[in-house]
Each structure stands twice: as structure tokens, then as C-alpha cells.
Design a protein around this nucleic acid. Sequence first.
DNA 1: TATGAATGAGGCTTCATTCAT
DNA 2: AATGAATGAAGCCTCATTCAT
Lengths: 193, 193, 193, 193
Amino acid sequence: MDAKPLPSSRRELTKTQNRETILEAARLVFAQIGFASATVRDIIRATHLASGTFYNYFKSKEQVYQALRDEEALVLRPRLRQVRAQAVTAEEFIAESFRTFFWFEIEKGGAGNERFRLDSREVMAGFDELRQDILAAMTRGLLPVADAGLLTAALTGLAFELAEEIKRGAEVEKVTSFATALVLGGLGGLPKT
Amino acid sequence: MDAKPLPSSRRELTKTQNRETILEAARLVFAQIGFASATVRDIIRATHLASGTFYNYFKSKEQVYQALRDEEALVLRPRLRQVRAQAVTAEEFIAESFRTFFWFEIEKGGAGNERFRLDSREVMAGFDELRQDILAAMTRGLLPVADAGLLTAALTGLAFELAEEIKRGAEVEKVTSFATALVLGGLGGLPKT
Amino acid sequence: MDAKPLPSSRRELTKTQNRETILEAARLVFAQIGFASATVRDIIRATHLASGTFYNYFKSKEQVYQALRDEEALVLRPRLRQVRAQAVTAEEFIAESFRTFFWFEIEKGGAGNERFRLDSREVMAGFDELRQDILAAMTRGLLPVADAGLLTAALTGLAFELAEEIKRGAEVEKVTSFATALVLGGLGGLPKT
Amino acid sequence: MDAKPLPSSRRELTKTQNRETILEAARLVFAQIGFASATVRDIIRATHLASGTFYNYFKSKEQVYQALRDEEALVLRPRLRQVRAQAVTAEEFIAESFRTFFWFEIEKGGAGNERFRLDSREVMAGFDELRQDILAAMTRGLLPVADAGLLTAALTGLAFELAEEIKRGAEVEKVTSFATALVLGGLGGLPKT
DNA sequence: TATGAATGAGGCTTCATTCAT
DNA sequence: AATGAATGAAGCCTCATTCAT
């Protein structure tokens, strides 16, 4: 069941640790200065490792990015699929999706430079998964039938932009309620503040 | 009527043209590879000009970006303010805002690489203007009273993400209807596709 | 008798003025940042003229430098020759040389960046003239016979280094007395402060 | 005994050698075209190293210069202090100072371009040390009491300008005698050539 | 003659990547 | 594996100089 075997020797351990060190440094650097302006050197400098060591683990900045994405996706996407699958009302479907996403964004650690955030929409990669889940929910009558592609985009846009508000200090629950109310009932149903 | 006098000589003309050439090249380059990874050289290479010429017009990539932003903001923001000010129903307020934004995004042309789009959200420096207009609309009873900050973020997120769908081929009117229906009435009021 | 005819028309006048403008700007710039690091652009920028205009008057920075040197030499060297020729005692020969040089350095205008000062030893170009005058003075019994080359160098070194002290605030007369006493009688004959 | 441990591996050795290579090249370049007009590229071109390598050792031309100065000062200044401290007569004080300085200048090798010489006067950062030693010598009765600042400047000027004569071929001992005689007894006491 | 925009050479520096140790 | 110095391509920018107006 384990995707990766546990490190089985001292050497293995170090190997795993170095990889993690690099990923952690990259996450930090990307968050601070953005993926595009980050350099491999920046990542190495955020590390106690030598420059050559980087290349023992990754071929390029892009590859680190992929790894980071995969790691995040590995955590977030299953969580999202689960809450959506378990939803028995539209309200649950929507609210739990937002709530899960918002908490994850917080958990990821706040810094959150705009550039990386944006790129991080790809992290979600779960765009397609969301559309599929929406379609499934329409099929099973949970959500009214509508253009699934547009709805997916709409929810994504709401989620990312509202997540920014949370990073700026808004409360998760408040934002979740707001987003859910907006999606379920539109302007008319919004909480009165 | 012209704010700036027209070029008054061959020389002035060339100067104006070169500036435009650079801006146009920059727009293209930013759209293709994103602002952050674009280099001044990339921009120069996308023109027929010599490298030094760039610096006769702009001090840096950032400055070109500003010029581009200002140019766009100068066009888009007044349009948005106007449609919002003239709106006499919530439906008009919402629909016209989306429609105006979507048409503008198309007009701008750009392939629209994700990275630039994001940065280009600053183009909307009109974020604040939107919030103010929303507050004003709430005051005059056009929109129901709610958290203006969150609503601003929500509309922004919807607008940018749905604009992507349009760039991918969706029809402006269809997306406008969808977005408007979602905002006004939530999931329940969405067009049946 | 005039080396240069006076400007005879408006155009001539402007021409002369522009030349002077450039020379003046160059003098300033050289004094501030040194000849070697000064650029033609720096000189032009210190002027109200256009870059192209510079080349109507001088081919390069070096040529401006030459012109500046010539101008200075035209003033200083004849003065020095004269005082040395008129000297009837060794004391006069030495003292008047120093005094003349020191006053000239002050007159030139204080700023006096080290780099330009040094280069400006070439301005003196009168190195050879000094040697010849020393030889002549030895011949006519004014100065004791000794190695004229070394004496020339010695006086030059004294003059330039002590001129620095003057620029730092020492009084011309005091420094002149000091230098003269040192050269005529050595340490033993120096003023007691 | 060594302040710095000797290079302990092939690698360390190369590193030390490269540093020396760069310093040597810089010394040469500065001597030939002067510090101010020298470029980092000039220095690199005078080595077999790649451009980037320069920056593994120094951040800028200025830093190389500092290193060069420090290296020289480290050698010259203690020597000068020592001979001045050990002097028991005025003649020794003066003669040994000149002699030491002249030999050092020869030892340094350099073609000795004027510009570099001047800047290199800073090498003598020992200017202050000289003044202090002069004051001390006046106090202990070795030198007659006089204006120490002017005397310092005078000796410095003599030393640098006469060093030029040596570089042009004059003999060290002859120049030393000349300078010493001039300082001790003035024109009257100069050797008859 | 004066102008000032265009040019491209060339200086400075950082970067990704290699490779000997 | 880990190291980190070497490399040279490539980015940034300023410069001297030309030349159309």
C-alpha cells in the first residue's frame, strides 16, 4: 500500500532527507519570489547543500516544481474527491469543497506570493477532476444541470480569489459561508455581513 | 481634442512608431512566456530594433509593463465605471460588468498565457474601483447589502477565470449569461445549457 | 598679436561659445570623476548641447583633454618660464617657481579630484622646460651644479604633493616658505612651524 | 607558523593558484592601462580563465585592487616602520626610508604607468604612519622640529617622483643619495653628479 | 551647424550545468 | 553520493559614434 518504501538504511535516509530539503527550499523560494524568477541557485542557497547535489535529485527547476505539484496534489486532490463524493446535498458539495480548499491553502503556509499562487492553480490539476465530479453530481441529481465547464471555471475562480482574501486575514468559515451562499442562491442569499 | 499632439515630423513619427513597436512586442512576449520569465532581450528580439534602442524608450522590462498596464487601464477602467454607474438594476450592474470585461479581454487579443493573465490582474487596478462601486450600489439599493470585499473578490475571480474559458473558445454572450445568472440567483437559476 | 582672431559674426560667436562650453564642462567632469572614468556622455550631459554637437568640435575625450592641457599650459608655462628667467638668486628661482605653481593650482579651481590632479602633471608638460631652465641656471651660476634630471623630478614631486596640502587648506605662503627652505637648506633650515 | 594553512589538496592548490593568477593579471593590467580605465574583462583576458571565474574570487575590480593594495602594504609598511624606528641619525631615517621604498617599487616590477602609480600612492596608506614616525623622530631629537604635515607631503612627493626616475633607469643608490642629500642639506649639499 | 534617435560593440554579472576530487 | 570551482552562454546596460532631419 505504501507508495514509497521507508528508507531502509542510513544512506537511504540521507537521500530522502536531501530530496525533502530541496523540495522544502523550493517551496519557500517559489512562494517568496515566484516560480518564474526563482533560479536553481536560489533554491540551493536556501539549502545547506552544494550546487552539484541538486542535480543528483532533479534535472531542473521545472522538475522540482513538478515534484512539488505532485506532492501537493497527492494531498489535496484525494481530499477534495472524497468530500465531493460523500456530499449528499448541493450545499455539502459546494461548502465542503471550498472549506477543504481554503484549509489546504492555509496549511500550505501563508507567504503566498501572487506569482506562485497563480501558477499554483496548476497545482490543483484537479480542474478536470472537479469537472468530472460536477458532471457526476448533476447526473445523480445533486446539482442542477448546467454547463459543467463554465461551472468548473466559476468555482475555481471563486476559490482562488477568495483564498487570497483568507490569506489577507479573512476567516475561513466566513468566506466559506459567503462563497457557498453565493453559489447556491446568488446575491440575494448572501449573509448580511 | 488630442491630449498629445500628433507627431509633427518624420522623426517624431518614427519615434512614436518605435515606442509602439516595443510595446506591441512586449505585449506579445509577456503573453507568450509570461512577464516574469520574459527578458528585455526577448522583447528586443521580437522587434527589428537594436538592443540599445529599447533603452531610449524604457528603463526596464518593468517600465514597459507599466506602460502596457496604464494603456489598458486607461481604456478598461473608465468603461467599467461607466456601465456600473449607469446600471439601474442589479442584473444590469452584473451583466454589463462581465460583458465589458470579457469583450475587452478579447479585444486585447493576446494568446493569454496564464502567468501574464495573473499579473495582468493588476491591470484591473480597478479592483478598488469595483469595491467602491459595489458599496455605492449597495447604498442606493441596487445590490443587497453584503460583505463588499468578499463580493469584489468573488466577481474578480469569476471574471478572470471565465475569461479564460472565452479565450478557449466559449462565446461571450453565453458566458456572460452564465456568470450573471450564477451571481444573481445561484446554481438554481443557471441556464439549462 | 592675438593668437586667435576675435569672433567676427554671430555664428562665429556661437561656435566659440560652444567650444568653451564643452571645455568647461570637461574640466568640471574630469575634476569630479577623473579623466579615465569620464565618458563623452558625461561631458555632454554637463552641457546643454546635443551629443552630436560634441563631435563638431572634438573627435574624442582625449582631444578635449589635449585642448584643456594646451589651454592651461598656455597660461602656466609662460608664467613659470618668466619667473625663472628673471630670478637673480637661487632663492628667487625656487620660491617664485613654487609660488607661481601653487597660485595657479588654486586659480584652476579647487575641486581637484586626485585622479585628475595626477594626470594633470602632464598638464605641466613643462617638465622639460623646467629641466632646461635648471640647466641654464646651473650654467649661469644661479644654482649649484647637480643632476638636473633628478632635481627636476624632485621639484616636481614636491610641487605636486605640496599643492595637495594647499588644496586641503594650507596657506600658500607658508607652504612656499617651507618648500623653498627645504630645497635651499634642507631639514636644518626649515621654519620652526 | 603560517597564518593560512597551506593548500591541502590538489583542488585547494588550484584555487590558490587561480587567485594568484588573477591578482597577477590585475597588477599587470593596472600598471599598463591604469586602474581607472582597466575593466574586469581586461583582467580576465590577461589570464587563461573564464569570465565567470573572476567572480568566484572577487566581486569587482575594486576588490582586486584592495587585495593588491593590502598585499603590498602588508609588505612595505612594516619594512618602512622598522627602518625608521631603528634609525639613530637623521641621515639614516631619511636615507633608509627612501632606499626601502625605491627597492620595493623595483621589486613590484610593474612597468608603472603613471595613473596606477598615483592611485597606488594609497598603497602608502602609510602616509599617516610616516607622519607619526616623523613626529616621534622630532620628539626624540632625531629630526629638527618643523611642520610634520608638510614634511610628510614633501617626502612623499619626492619619493614617488624620484621612483619614476628609477623606473626610467636611474640607479637606486644614486637617487637615494641625491634625495637624502637634498633633504638633509638642500641644494648646496647635492652630490656634484 | 545643431540635433538626438539608432546602432551594435562591449562592459558587467549571474546563471545552469559539468566534472574532478 | 556530495562537493564546489570552472565554465561560457546569456542577460543587463551604457557607451561612442553616426546620420537623417
